[in-house]
Design a protein around this nucleic acid. Structure first.
Lengths: 105, 105
DNA sequence: TTCATATGTAATAAAAATATTACATATGGT
DNA sequence: ACCATATGTAATATTTTTATTACATATGAA
């Protein structure tokens, strides 16, 4: 697992936004057990691929997941998603630090 | 400061959603310096009160802020907002625990 | 009584997020 | 050639969030 580094307040709002939808939390839960390729994940989640792609895109932009292509034994290209590691201490102090980076107006 | 207790996954998605907008992070930053009443906060933030109310409502529902009325020396009713304390260890493990509470479909 | 400053909210507009449908390519096996 | 299973995405509809405008009440001071 790679580890997540956040610097800007946009990084954090992107992260929080990514975690603000239950289906995306669920995706993280499913991927935490083992990495999965997109179609597999869509079946497990009982979700259409286009919708899953949208959610994965948000998780990806928030640097919560990564992916890599792999050719299966039967020759198919599979896009495997997996969780990146992170460890954020969410407190009023952190938010205060972040708020200093945000201009008023 | 009161301390925040979260139990359901809704509590967490509500919290993350509340923190997904830069203006709300900024509000937390401003309030962390000292408690403020609504009109005062609106001036500092250079924001209309109706819009600020909407953002405060989200922070309130996420249990990040609380408020109380107070009568000023000049007899006006003031609604003071302040930060509640919290300390959340945001890791893939936490999200995995949360995801167990979220049903598929 | 009028002004300034608090409060609160309803109605609406604008923008963004969420979700669906439909289409497209590529591969290997039957 | 056709089917099943991967990939990807464009176009659209629906819903929610964000933001604005307008109105309303109450208080004390001038």
């Amino acid at each position: 697992m790679e580890s997540l580094i956040l610097s800007s307040h946009e990084d954090y709002t992107r992260l929080f936004d990514a975690l603000s939808h239950p289906m995306r939390i669920k995706v993280v839960g499913v991927l935490s057990e083992k990495r999965r390729y997109v179609s597999e994940l869509a079946k497990i989640m009982n979700m259409s691929r286009p919708l899953l792609y949208m959610h994965l895109k948000k998780l990806e932009e928030a640097a919560i997941v990564t992916w890599s292509y792999e050719i299966s034994e039967t020759g198919k290209s599979m896009k495997y998603y997996e969780i990146k590691d992170f460890d954020i201490h969410l407190t009023p102090e952190l938010l205060t630090e972040l708020s200093k980076m945000i201009p008023i107006l």
